[in-house]
Computed example of a mutant assay.
Amino acid sequence: MTEVLNDAITNYEQKQFWETVNEQIERTQREDPQAWADYLAERELVLGPRPRARQVAPEWEGLIVFPEERQ
């Protein structure tokens, strides 16, 4: 029983974390589009061009919404 509760709490915390991250990303895009553009440009310099297709690990499915998917 304790393991089931611990798993449920962990899943809830992960979901809350990613919801907060998504809200912060949306706020930055909305309130400071120049900072968001700067971030994307710097990210591309560090990581290289974005891949054409995105794959998300099954356990993250539905928890992450990529910025380009919101537009």
Rank of each mutant, 00 (worst) to 15 (best):
D32Q: 11
W36P: 04
P33W: 04
E44M: 10
L45Y: 02
R50P: 01
L63S: 03
N11M: 06
V56R: 12
E23Q: 13
Q24Y: 13
R30M: 11
A57T: 09
Q34N: 12
R43L: 12
T2E: 14
W36F: 11
N6S: 13
P51F: 05
T10N: 10
P49V: 07
A41E: 06
V21G: 01
E19D: 04
P58V: 06
G48W: 13
N22P: 00
N6T: 03
N22F: 00
A37D: 05
P33M: 03
E61W: 05
E23M: 06
I9D: 05
Y39P: 04
I25C: 00
T2N: 11
V4F: 05
N22C: 05
E31W: 03
P51T: 07
A53Y: 14
L45G: 00
P33D: 04
R27T: 14
R27E: 00
V65M: 06
T20N: 04
P67S: 11
A57Q: 11
K15T: 14
E69H: 07
R50F: 03
V4G: 01
E68R: 09
W60R: 14
E42K: 15
E61M: 06
W60Q: 11
I64N: 04
R70I: 10
E3A: 14
L45H: 04
E69P: 04
A41H: 10
D7W: 11
A37R: 11
Q55T: 11
A53M: 09
E42F: 09
L40I: 10
R54Q: 10
